[in-house]
């Protein structure tokens, strides 16, 4: 079976500043895949290319055998109806209750009767453990709860592909484990495919099937979670074990230390 998401020689630059170059990825259906890398390595840009928010300057991004950058506006929106996205801090609509947030995509894209929408919303909220919070407003939720509501909203239309942009940022250990488990369970229950952009090594290793490491706009390593955990590649080792120095240097580029301190001069 062909991969659900396929990137071939993708390059992208913001103006004159290159962000990605020569990116190749193939993400199989049904998998949960993490894209990891340091800040500014181009992870979120990759997610935006897959979601069709950005167009690559070179190469191709294919999802479900269709080239995303070639989709016209109407086709792009039709494609996005089969896509769920969890943004970094949830991005809930602040003027809508938890219930209405989850009902939003259903009301916008279907003509289902309100009674059926109610049942579907309660099922999605039950799946993330927040059926009892349906009447709360986003301002009344903790960070972890907001992320769970956003997750319920992202899967409201049973998407084929779910994109997660830094889903673990700023969460306490319990919320972090809950979100991690939900990502895996919802993916398997819906028969979907998930791409998780994250820094969080330990939570990701526990839930994902494959990992891509991205550094300076290139894929520097790729393999299963177990392979990456035991990898001896210097960048992967430094990232997975949180080592202070390595391919990503501790010191910002500077003149030699001795020269800076004027050692050996009269």
């Amino acid at each position: 079976m062909s991969p659900l998401v396929e990137l071939t020689d993708v390059a992208f630059a913001y103006g004159e500043r290159p962000v990605l170059s020569g990116i190749n990825m193939a993400i199989a259906r049904g998998k949960v895949v993490a894209i990891m890398g340091g800040s500014g390595s181009g992870k979120t840009t990759l997610l935006r290319l897959i979601g069709g928010q950005l167009r690559p300057q070179a190469g191709q991004v294919k999802v479900a055998d269709r080239v995303v950058s070639e989709l016209r506006s109407r086709d792009l929106y039709r494609f996005r109806r089969r896509l769920g996205m969890l943004l970094q801090f949830g991005a809930l609509f602040t003027d809508l209750s938890v219930f209405d947030n989850v009902a939003f995509p259903l009301r916008e894209h279907t003509r289902l009767p309100e009674s059926l929408i109610r049942d579907l919303v309660l099922m999605k909220l039950h799946a993330v453990g927040l059926r009892g919070a349906r009447q709360l407003m986003p301002a009344e939720l903790s960070g972890g709860m907001a992320r769970r509501v956003a997750l319920a909203r992202a899967v409201a239309l049973d998407p084929m592909l779910i994109l997660y942009d830094e889903p673990f940022t700023g969460l306490d250990p319990i919320s972090l484990a809950v979100i991690g488990n939900l990502i895996r369970r919802l993916n398997d229950a819906l028969g979907a495919t998930s791409i998780v952009v994250t820094h969080d090594v330990h939570e990701s290793l526990a839930i994902v099937d494959d990992i891509y490491f991205v550094s300076e706009g290139r894929v520097v390593a790729h393999g299963t979670a177990a392979q990456m955990s035991d990898s001896e590649l210097p960048f992967v080792r430094q990232f997975v074990h949180g080592e202070m120095d390595g391919p990503v240097p501790f010191q910002y580029t500077a003149p030699p230390y001795g020269e800076d301190l004027r050692l050996g001069r009269p």
Partner: peptide, 21 residues
């Protein structure tokens, strides 16, 4: 503020045009 808190991006990714909605 909707833009700053990514609500407009979220809407766009849900295939709902923020200009129209």
């Amino acid at each position: 503020l909707m833009k700053a808190t990514e609500q407009l991006v979220a809407m766009d990714m849900m295939a709902v045009d923020p200009v129209a909605r």
